[in-house]
Amino acid sequence: MAELYDRYSSVVYAVALRVLGDTGAAEDVLQEVFLQLWRNPSAFDAARGNLGSWLAVVTRNRAIDSLRKRRPETDIENVVLSVAPDLAGEAERARAAEKVRGVMGAMVPAQRSALEMAYWEGMSHSEIANKTGEPLGTIKTRIRAGLIALRKAFQTG
């Protein structure tokens, strides 16, 4: 477990801190995510994704739940992801992060901010529509197109 922690804690902590903006709260999420994995290792199915990506998704969801003060909505067992790059090494992670930032930077600002509000702030599509004054349908389209753009960037290598 110590080894797993050393390998992935920086990803988990970075995600939690980005969502929560508070080091104490981020540490709590870090602790919770690794403890849950320890208690229930079978929740992670290596056949369906790699551990780094899985932890990133679980952490983001937990941090959002904590940010919005709601009961944990996702059981870690429910998270299944099928496509994601292998992020086990620091170097792969740094390259992938660079690429993600490139794709995000190339998006029109309204699309990028819709995606970021949904992802990092846990806002619902109607909350985003209220905040930006744009129609619900536009928000939906932007978010999906943003995610697909990311996927394509990684599919083409």
Binding site: S9, V15, L81, V83, R151
Partner: peptide, 29 residues
């Protein structure tokens, strides 16, 4: 849906920050 969740994992990567403090490791172990 599974693929889209994989895509969201990519978004998580754009977070970069300091490493967690040493006390967090000790606390977990």
């Amino acid at each position: 849906l599974e693929q889209l969740r994989g895509d969201t994992a990519l978004l998580a990567l754009s977070a970069a920050g300091p490493r967690p403090p040493q006390r967090a490791r000790k606390r977990l172990l």
